[in-house]
Design a protein around this nucleic acid. Sequence first.
DNA 1: TGCCAGGCCCTCTTTAGGGCCTT
Length: 207
Amino acid sequence: METIAVIDFETTGLAPEQGARATEIAVALVRDGRVVDRYQSLMNAGVRVPSFIQDLTGITNAMIRQAPPAARVMAEAAAFVGTCPLVAHNASFDRKFWDAELDRIGLGRTRGQAFACSMLVARRLLPDAPNHKLGTLASFLGLPAAGRSHRAQADADMAASLTLYLEQEIQRRFGLPVVSHALLMALQKAPRTRLQTCVERFVAVSA
DNA sequence: TGCCAGGCCCTCTTTAGGGCCTT
């Protein structure tokens, strides 16, 4: 059975190209329809956390000063994830930080697995949701409360619950016995009006 | 102190603009 790694970063800003660094990472490993293991750590990248981000996340400069070095944390996170395919909510954001932080420790060019995006899949499967923010979708779907939002573990757990819900919805809607990470990747790029065709083609090619 | 990005996706579109989503 496939294991998927759902990850979430807290950072000092929106873009590593602009100097933003990760402050916290959490990973939830999902297998057989449930979270089977977790990794979480604050990390010290030697940068100050802007006050706006401290207000948003609750992660203070004092907390970062006491955290282990970013290099050690990212090495641990990469080892924890291994070769599992990845999922994040708005994956384009987390993918940038995953690659940039690992690149700093010489592991950035080794990522072989793909990043699926729970937000892109949710936009296709749940067009009637009020919006597609992680917290809104969790409330809209009645997913279990996961703790303080905008902290990495709570958001990774929420994204994991959302991913499991989306997989179950794909199974139900298209009559599939199992939903792979590769199918999530295919669906997140499919035109919203052609999801059925996308699934049929995926099943035919995979057979 | 204040500011910053970028891919996706819709529409009053495609020779573009702007909202969404992540911190």
